[in-house]
Lab assay of single mutants.
Amino acid sequence: EEEEKKKEEIARLLGVSKEDVERILKKNNLDIEQLLRRVQREN
């Protein structure tokens, strides 16, 4: 699934687990696209 791939990509870029990414998304109330763009910009 596309969303899972995005979570895995974010996890890889941040050096965290996919579960961490899911927690970040919930905690910050971000959607996956916003987080992915933010992470890609910083790297």
Rank of each mutant, 00 (worst) to 15 (best):
E1G: 12
E2N: 11
E2K: 10
E2T: 12
E3D: 14
E3G: 11
E4G: 07
E4P: 03
E4K: 07
K5S: 11
K5N: 10
K5E: 10
K5I: 10
K5H: 11
K6Q: 11
K6G: 05
K6S: 06
K7Q: 03
K7L: 12
K7C: 05
K7I: 14
E8C: 09
E8W: 09
E8Q: 12
E9G: 04
E9Y: 13
E9L: 15
E9W: 12
I10P: 00
I10E: 00
I10Y: 03
I10K: 00
A11F: 00
R12D: 06
R12M: 10
R12Y: 08
R12S: 08
L13V: 05
L13D: 01
L13P: 00
L13Y: 06
L13R: 07
L13I: 15
L14T: 02
L14K: 01
L14H: 01
G15Y: 01
G15A: 04
G15E: 04
V16L: 09
V16E: 01
V16I: 14
V16A: 04
S17D: 07
S17H: 06
S17F: 04
S17E: 06
K18L: 14
K18D: 03
K18G: 04
K18S: 07
E19P: 05
E19N: 09
E19C: 08
D20K: 07
V21D: 00
E22S: 05
E22N: 09
E22V: 06
E22R: 02
R23F: 08
I24G: 01
I24F: 08
I24C: 09
L25Q: 03
L25T: 02
L25D: 00
L25C: 09
K26P: 00
K26S: 11
K26L: 11
K27T: 13
K27F: 11
N28H: 15
N28I: 10
N28V: 10
N28W: 11
N29Q: 08
N29V: 05
N29G: 13
N29T: 05
N29A: 08
L30K: 02
D31T: 15
D31P: 04
I32Q: 01
I32R: 00
E33L: 04
E33I: 02
E33A: 03
Q34P: 02
Q34K: 06
L35A: 03
L36T: 02
L36Y: 05
L36A: 05
R37N: 13
R37W: 01
R37H: 13
R37Q: 15
R37P: 03
R38F: 11
R38G: 09
R38Y: 12
R38N: 14
R38E: 15
R38L: 15
R38A: 15
R38D: 15
V39L: 15
V39T: 06
V39A: 14
V39F: 03
Q40K: 10
Q40T: 12
Q40I: 13
R41K: 14
R41H: 14
R41M: 15
R41Y: 07
E42M: 06
E42H: 12
E42L: 06
N43S: 14
